[in-house]
């Protein structure tokens, strides 16, 4: 950009000068609330939907079973907001995967994500102190303007998908989970399930262990790679549900065989056709 002021100008003039110069390059800036400004092509601000605004309010409440910070928050009629100082969040052209890891820690939820996400680098540098909810909004909004959506799945999971696949997630969430929970098992502590980019066949022994039943694999399944790190304690049922959602994002599902005793990992479309 080549831009200069003529004569003495105020800060407001400089801001408007830059905004106009950006607009001439089809870049629009829109103020969002009191602490944010969105910069993107025309229509970028519309990506900050009511869902994007509301999700952080839900996420700021830590999920059940994750005791960190809950006592202070629940016992006080006016809980003190923890503030993140300006500059605490400082991503400069950072790989999306790294940003998602930090987001997962901040929101204390387990992310369910396909391996193939559009992977723009993310630049996010906070310039004012933010509450935890505001920081979560900043993450969620910067994902949204980069066409990545976060969808809540129960109290402990968030599904991360390209925005154009959001409708597909609704179908996944409506699907019956195949979990049969083993009784008498203690919840799995946070971080127990920690695998990154492992092939599906390596996940099946874990699924078998959780489910207590052998799982066959259909021949010719895609060699998808899966990532899953439980950020909070999970019951066996919750863990199975999380893995089920993860498989669903790859169009895979574990279904019961007709004999009712064994399980099989199949393509999701096949299970749909079988039902009909």
């Amino acid at each position: 950009m080549n831009l200069g002021s003529e004569g003495p100008v105020t800060t407001g003039d400089i801001v408007r000068g830059i905004e106009n110069a950006l607009q001439a390059q089809d870049v629009f800036t829109v103020h969002e609330g009191e602490k944010f400004v969105i910069a993107g092509k025309e229509g970028a601000a519309a990506k900050i939907t009511s869902e994007v605004r509301q999700l952080p309010e839900t996420l700021r409440r830590r999920p059940p079973g994750n005791s960190v910070g809950t006592a202070a928050a629940s016992n006080s009629s006016k809980p003190t907001e923890e503030m993140l100082p300006a500059g605490t969040i400082n991503f400069f052209q950072t790989d999306l995967d790294q940003v998602l890891r930090i987001f997962q820690e901040l929101c204390s939820r387990t992310l369910i994500r396909p391996e193939t996400l559009p992977s723009p680098s993310i630049t996010l540098q906070t310039s004012t102190p933010l509450t935890r909810a505001e920081a979560l909004f900043a993450f969620n909004a910067v994902f949204a303007v980069n066409d990545i959506s976060i969808v809540q799945a129960g109290e402990k999971f968030l599904i991360v998908v390209p925005t154009f696949e959001t409708n597909r997630v609704a179908g996944l969430l409506a699907r019956r989970s195949p979990a049969i929970v083993q009784a008498g098992k203690d919840p799995l502590p946070a971080g127990t399930l920690n695998f990154r980019a492992i092939p599906v066949r390596s996940l099946m022994p874990i699924f078998q262990e959780l489910r207590g039943q052998p799982v066959e694999m259909e021949a010719g399944l895609p060699d998808a790679r899966l990532t899953f790190v439980n950020q909070t304690p999970l019951t066996y049922g919750e863990a199975l549900r999380g893995i089920d959602l993860l498989l669903g994002l790859q169009d895979l599902a574990v279904v019961e065989q007709q004999d009712g005793k064994s399980l099989k990992l199949v393509r999701l479309k096949q299970t749909t056709s079988e039902k009909h």
Binding site: M1, T29, A39
Partner: peptide, 28 residues
């Protein structure tokens, strides 16, 4: 005040803009 930008790349322009408006920039 005054401003002069000469072949400033988008990263610099946005960093300056964020500083001037004192808001966190959420950018595509």
């Amino acid at each position: 005040g005054s401003l002069r930008l000469q072949q400033a790349g988008p990263g610099l322009v946005f960093a300056l803009y964020q500083t001037l408006v004192q808001r966190t920039l959420l950018r595509a």
